[in-house]
Design a binder for these strands. Structure first.
Lengths: 226, 226
DNA sequence: AGAGTCTGGATTGTCAGACAATCTGACCAG
DNA sequence: CTGGTCAGATTGTCTGACAATCCAGACTCT
């Protein structure tokens, strides 16, 4: 039963709880750039706008806070998290720890998990070729990185990785589209997977470090420029 | 201001929000073994028992669920998480990834963070010598492990590590005291720190892997025996 | 006029009570 | 003994309310 719940979770969003729907709507608005960082999220306003009650909104907000997408100040409510350089650096640091663990687990990973990485890469590359939207490319890009962590086969590490890329997604949304050369990104990923498929785990690990470091710098630059 | 809030957070628990106090009380009851794994946590019962309202309890329960200490099944409420072998293995796996990252960061860590590890070790050893209670030893033991992750200087990695040991604490509480030889544990930790202080990072990393693997086996054994 | 103080409105934190939807378990019919 | 139905219990959500706190602007005093 539990694998069903997991597998169909995206399809069952229809009758997910109201709280989850509200949280999802808020996330979407944040990723879509409809609310700027630091914007206070007023409970009553959201409740009226979405046609739900205030307690429901409160629960959804608590969810966002626990995900790091928003911050709560006592008696002052919650507001959209504002990405700062320290946060970007820390997230990328964490990503290297987690994704690095995935890369190092390449040899012990099951064939399914390895082909999952390849599948995500292909999906991303195809999207790039087809000139998909910035938003979609971004999601696919991050999905690839999460699939690296999937090589460990650890649900907790994957959950942590997912939380990290979600935080990053917010930062990217705020920074108004770090539209770096998508082809370079795809090629870089391709190189990483090729190293893995050649069984050069150490090389892939080192490559990943450079890749993530580059990503951090790019975001930091965009952040400073905004 | 923010560093004050962080530094004094433990002292300010007195006038923390009601929700946090409820969540804390529930955690305490779980760690104290007052509720068994799988026990349903009824909202109304808790609300009456603690003299708070049901929405408040709901928020506290949501907090526990997001920490992995409890699970929520739709329309069936939340109940205390039941530790299973896969969970223990996964937590220990994650711990190795995070604490390993801490160990590998030894050379780049600030002197304060390194002495923090030493301080936690001394504290633990002293408590063992003084024959502290099982509960206290357990907390100090886990605090030492978290301080290893602190070597990375990454607040997110530390938060993840804290969440992991909290989950483990629950498992240990349920398993009715894995009262392994506390002296061996302390000695093992001492050996690890000595390796680090001799700058043998690789050796310490390998040692940590064995240490965590042993810990997992011990807990699994106790779990199976219960 | 400038600086400190006070008050009103807005917002959160928390509570009480209520209702429909769903689940559980027991009772009853075949 | 098996299967269906029903009552009780519990959750998910809503409405409405109130005290505590915070912010902004007016007000007073020098």
């Amino acid at each position: 039963m539990s694998e069903q719940a997991g597998r169909y979770s995206t399809l069952r969003l229809e009758h997910a709880s109201t709280v989850d729907r509200v949280a999802g709507e808020l996330r979407r608005a944040m990723f879509e750039g409809e609310v700027e960082s630091g914007t206070p999220l007023r409970e009553l306003a959201i409740a009226e706008q979405l046609g739900v009650s205030r307690p429901t909104v409160r629960e959804a907000l608590a969810q966002l806070v626990s995900e790091g997408l928003a911050t709560r100040e006592p008696n002052r409510g919650v507001s959209v998290a504002t990405p700062d350089p320290a946060m970007v650096r820390d997230v990328c640091r964490c990503r290297f720890v987690l994704e690095g663990a995935g890369v190092l687990a390449w040899r012990d990973a099951t064939p399914e998990r390895r082909s999952e990485v390849r599948a995500r890469l292909d999906e991303y590359v195809r999207a790039v070729d087809e000139g998909a939207s910035y938003r979609d490319l971004n999601d696919l890009h991050l999905a690839f990185h999460v699939s690296l962590v999937g090589l460990t086969g650890s649900p907790r590490l994957m959950a942590m990785a997912q939380a990290l890329v979600t935080e990053l997604k917010l930062a990217l949304a705020q920074v108004d589209r770090v539209r770096r050369n998508a082809h370079d990104q795809a090629r870089s990923h391709e190189a990483l997977v090729l190293l893995l498929e050649k069984d050069d785990v150490a090389g892939a690990h080192a490559f990943l470090e450079g890749h993530l470091s580059d990503a951090a710098e790019a975001i930091l630059g965009a952040l400073g420029a905004s």
